[in-house]
Each structure stands twice: as structure tokens, then as C-alpha cells.
């Protein structure tokens, strides 16, 4: 479903991604771990072209999204993204946050969009917050709304960029719960995370990145139990 070939990305002089090759299948839940600065967020952000790769190709469903001919806005409608800082639109209430894109981009009527929104709000357990503004919500609630907002476009792939890193500890669980449910439903996902327990439990595959490369990949339980690479071993010994 996602084919990444020979991906490089530099910011000015600094090379962040140094040749990534990866093939992600439908319904996979790929968790990406690694030390900070290893390029895992940048890798994720390349998948929906939040960052423009310096070199290499990314194909989604066979369409090369790095080609200049590709309409990037259409690609992004198929690839939802959830950010560390939630990035809800503070000048709109929860309902408008969720319905804006489906109405403007997919031509849904207000009623249709709101129906979708309520279904998703039920899913994340926040139906009663529909008319609130984001500043009235806790971090965990904001992130669950952000997930609902991304799902409202009915994406085929969801990208999570450290979805719980900005949360107070007691709110991490409610967000992970929502992501876990999505995984159970068969959503194709890529998750950059520092939650090792969650990665082990929910991930169908794990990528360990360091210094802009994928160092090790495999079944999360196996990698955690028996890492093959020295760098993976050192990293895991520090975080577990």
C-alpha cells in the first residue's frame, strides 16, 4: 500500500533521512521507535508530503506522490495525520473542526457531515463536547477530537506523530484506547511513539530508526524480547 524507495531528506546542510526503503501493507500497524533526532517524525511527515523529500520515491496505492504531476491535496485526503500538539482550530467549535474539511473538500452537506461527525464523536467518546471550543477541552480530549477530525475525511491511512507526547500521564490511556480500537478495525497506520508497551501490544510491525536509517524491523514482541542489532539493544535497555 505504501512503497518507500531510497528516501532522503535534508534540511539545509543537515541530512535527516539517509536512504529509507520500506513497504507497508494494507491493515498493517507500523510503530516507529528510536532516539530523538533519528528522523522518525520526518519519515512520517514525508508520507503525506508535510516534508518534501530531497530524493527518492513514495508510492501510495501505486501512485508516485513525489511526482510533480500528483495532486498533493488529493493524496492528503486519503492520508490522515494526527499531530503531537493536536493543532485543533481554536476559532471553531468541535463540530466545525470536524465538519469543515468533509464539507469543503468532499462536498458533503452540513447534515451529512454532522452525521459523520456524531458517529466519530461517539467513537472517541466525546459526543457531548460537540459545541465546545477547543480551549475548554483537556489535552486528551483535544487529541481524541483531532483523531476524529482526521477520520472524518475517511482516510485509508492514518499517521500518528507522537500522539501522546504532549499529554499529561493520566490522559495517555484514553488516547491510546482510541488508537487501539482503530487498529482492531483494520485501519492501516504508522505510529511514531515513545510508548513502548503500547508499541509492543498494538503494532503488527516495528521499525527501529537511528541516524536517519531503519536499523531493525520485525515483529514488535520479538524485537523487544530479542533485538538483533547492537544499537537497538542499547536503545531498548535505556527506555525499558
Amino acid at each position: 500500500m505504501i512503497e518507500v524507495k531510497n528516501l532522503y531528506k535534508s534540511f539545509g546542510e543537515i541530512e535527516v533521512l539517509k536512504g529509507i526503503d520500506e513497504h507497508i501493507m494494507k491493515e498493517e500497524v507500523v510503530v516507529i521507535i528510536g532516539p530523538s533526532g533519528s528522523g522518525k517524525s520526518t519519515f512520517l511527515r514525508c508520507i503525506n508530503l508535510m516534508e518534501q523529500p530531497t530524493q527518492g520515491t513514495i508510492k501510495i496505492d501505486g501512485v508516485d506522490i513525489t511526482s510533480p504531476k500528483t495532486n498533493i491535496n488529493q493524496v492528503r485526503q486519503k492520508v490522515g495525520m494526527v499531530f503531537q500538539q493536536f493543532n485543533l482550530f481554536p476559532h471553531m467549535n468541535v463540530m466545525d473542526n470536524i465538519t469543515l474539511a468533509p464539507m469543503k473538500l468532499k462536498g458533503l452537506t452540513k447534515n451529512e457531515a454532522e452525521e459523520v461527525a456524531y458517529t466519530l464523536l461517539d467513537k472517541v467518546g466525546l459526543r457531548e463536547k460537540a459545541m465546545e471550543y477547543p480551549n475548554k477541552l483537556s489535552g486528551g480530549q483535544k487529541q481524541r477530537i483531532a483523531i476524529a477530525r482526521a477520520l472524518a475525511m475517511n482516510p485509508e491511512i492514518m499517521l500518528f506523530d507522537e500522539p501522546t507526547s504532549a499529554l499529561d500521564p493520566e490522559m495517555v490511556k484514553e488516547v491510546l484506547e482510541v488508537i487501539r480500537e482503530l487498529a482492531n478495525e483494520g485501519m492501516t497506520m504508522m505510529i511514531v511513539t515513545h510508548e513502548m508497551g503500547f508499541a509492543k501490544e498494538v503494532g503488527t510491525r516495528l521499525l527501529f530508526m537511528d541516524e536517519g536509517k531503519i536499523i531493525e524491523r520485525g515483529n514488535p514482541k520479538e524485537v523487544f524480547a530479542n533485538p538483533q542489532e547492537e544499537r537497538t539493544r542499547i536503545f531498548l535497555s535505556k527506555v525499558l
Binding site: 491535496n73 492528503r76 490522515g80 499531530f83 493543532n87 485543533l88 469543515l100 469543503k104 473538500l105 482526521a150
Partner: peptide, 17 residues
């Protein structure tokens, strides 16, 4: 916050939208 532009673009909106 530049996350606002990113969030909007990530949903598929064009720059002008």
C-alpha cells in the same frame, strides 16, 4: 502556530483554502 497551517493542509486543503 505553524501547526495550524499544517493541520489544515494535512486534511487536504489547498494553501488558499
Amino acid at each position: 502556530d505553524k501547526g495550524q497551517m499544517e493541520a489544515a493542509r494535512s486534511l487536504g486543503m489547498s494553501y488558499s483554502m
